[in-house]
Design a protein around this nucleic acid. Structure first.
Lengths: 165, 165
DNA sequence: ACCTACTGCTTCGAATTCGAAGCACGCCGC
DNA sequence: GCGGCGTGCTTCGAATTCGAAGCAGTAGGT
């Protein structure tokens, strides 16, 4: 069914560069986080999302929506963080189904400590070779792509209604 | 150790956009490959690397260098591909330690079949919202980053090759 | 109040990932 | 030829990922 013209050289190169750069960057960041804080990239992301709110609290679902991971994976990683004493889990009083995840002081402290090295890696690997205008452009172009992705039907989100036998 | 100024808003936004877009794109591509060909993204990449040479042959190490994955992971995935009859593994006559991986006709056929949908996904998710100039810029900027990453010392590991002359 | 659908999260099993350790071959000097 | 070292790949165990199925709690219609 796909009826798409093949990608030309420019398009392919852009796509490959994107995937390769992000992959390398992710590996480097992951490494640094593990070395300096014993955190996986996912765990760091969770802490970072919690850090965005002044009270350091978010519902599981809110976190999941910010991240790309599956819900079950989030459950697992939050459990790991809780085991390490970096977050706490409390049922919401609003809605008994919801779980509120809260960063503990240790969690916030660790985030702050690790963030320095994180920024350092990003700076050195990604930002150093870029001019100011490059960074703006990157943010601009990729921001547009991100928005676009959000508006697209997930390809197999077939009408949940009637499969119309 | 790290003595880096915090990232400003633009830099952070560019970094986040990069990671988010690549992550979503990867998930989408992975999904498509699994649905249409029963392949993981890694397996697809391996087949694609094999497809780059006219004879469809590469040594394990050469494949590993093209990809970001660990050697052991490559062994595992090549074993999966071999089990599915998409590649064969033969010891090199040159060097008994080396293993030559060769794409079978079925492997090549599957690659060709799956590539169409792959291109379609990339086109729809990544390229559609971008103008010609955006794509060129993206390739340009990210290409520069990739080069830069290659020249940087891995932060804590000595190069595998001869460090000095 | 009841029934049904939906939402939020967890549990489960399978697949994949990595790094460390191990095995076998090849190169170099003596 | 004979050690010793480096290289190429595999095996092993632990951690992480996902989707499907399951378990509450919530909301709407009657």
């Amino acid at each position: 069914m796909p009826d798409t013209p093949p990608l030309d050289h420019e398009q392919l190169a852009a796509y490959f560069a994107l995937m390769e750069v992000s992959s390398m960057l992710q590996h480097a960041v992951d490494q640094q986080l593990r070395d300096e804080g014993g955190l996986s990239y996912t765990q760091f992301q969770i802490l970072a999302v919690l850090g965005e709110t002044p009270d350091g609290q978010q519902r599981m679902t809110d976190i999941a929506d910010r991240l790309v991971h599956s819900r079950s994976g989030l459950t697992y990683q939050v459990a790991q963080l809780a085991k390490a004493g970096l977050v706490t889990r409390t049922p919401s009083s609003d809605d008994e189904r919801s779980v509120i995840v809260t960063a503990t002081p240790q969690g916030k402290a660790l985030l702050g400590r690790v963030m320095l090295g994180h920024v350092d890696v990003v700076q050195r690997l990604l930002l150093t070779p870029l001019a100011r205008t490059d960074i703006t452009t990157l943010r601009d172009v990729l921001g547009r792509v991100r928005e676009h992705m959000g508006t697209i039907p997930p390809r197999s989100a077939a009408p949940r209604r009637k499969p119309s036998a």
